[in-house]
Design a protein around this nucleic acid. Structure first.
Ligand code: FES
Ligand code: FES
Lengths: 157, 157
DNA sequence: TGAATAAAAGACATCGTTGTCCTTTATGGT
DNA sequence: ACCATAAAGGACAACGATGTCTTTTATTCA
């Protein structure tokens, strides 16, 4: 499946936080989980990890929550993939046979080397910021599990 | 990880059978598992599945085992992927958000559409037979978990 | 200082993948 | 018919990914 669920949740969480930065300083996990349609506590675990790894900042207590710096916006997706799924997709043999290299290639090595290289290039050259753009309501719908009318954006904050 | 272990075992099993066809009519699971360095009973399950789906033929009893037809050699890898992992990699959104299409694309859709298209093309146009070639000993080493000296090829058959 | 809020932390549950083991069925040789 | 061989089938175990729940820690505000 290329990416794990964890990677998907992490990316969507980060994008949601990035999107909210002009409105509010910190975003709470509860709000993220609801808007994105993602399991709350599981998302919490993932966010905690990202904080520890320096990709997010968090503040406890009232008015606290998660936020991110410009540096994070400029990070390539590969960094996030590394923190969640690891880089096995690129470093390991697709058939999981010892080391992956041209010296002792598996039957799929050369075909997959191309694909893996292309994928890696995309993950290396695409930053979090690159995924943003567009208008806000449409963008939130594009990362939410279920659509919701944009009115929820203004409401209870 | 792109492919499951199951897919890897299945492919290596099929290639091993294909490779042995000039020597012996049927290949036993025991031999396959040992030579490839793969869990025996798990491999059995996978082979059973491939037989049921028409990708392999099997015969029970003494001198029995698995074999495959020319038709199987001409099958694209995509068929095997379908029988093991399914085609979710190609049909689903990489973030697992509803349907994957350009109408309501996720933030990674267009980047991943290209990669997924390339991968699919490889899987569609590459057949089992395409992976064979080369000299036998070298090829077996390329699908075995651990190297073994070629003498094992001649020995106890 | 006390109450409320929100993340951090850790224990535990569920589920799909991977792997093992035992019994049943089919086949060939005697 | 009987025995040996080998796949088919099904029960179950181990494990990692995913998901839930409760307790602890940090922070804000009154
Ligand atoms: S050796 Fe298998 S993908 Fe490189
Ligand atoms: S919509 Fe996400 S990959 Fe197509």
């Amino acid at each position: 499946m290329i990416f794990s669920k964890t990677f998907g949740y992490a990316l969507r969480g980060i994008l949601y936080i990035a999107l909210m930065q002009d409105e509010k300083r910190f975003v709470q996990i509860e709000e993220m989980a609801q808007k994105l349609g993602v399991p709350r506590h599981f998302l919490g675990k993932i966010m905690k990890r990202l904080v520890k790894e320096g990709m997010l900042l968090s503040v406890k207590g009232p008015y606290g929550g998660y936020t991110l710096s410009d540096a994070t916006l400029q990070m390539p997706l590969l960094r996030l993939e590394d923190l969640t799924d690891g880089l096995g997709t690129f470093n390991n043999c697709v058939l999981r046979l010892r080391a992956c290299n041209a010296t002792n290639p598996c039957p799929l090595h050369f075909q997959m080397e191309r694909i893996k290289g292309d994928l890696r290039r995309v993950m290396e050259t695409t930053t979090i910021a690159d995924l943003l753009h567009k208008d806000k309501k449409e963008f939130i719908n594009s990362i939410a599990t279920y659509e919701f009318d944009g009115s929820m954006l203004e409401n209870e904050n």
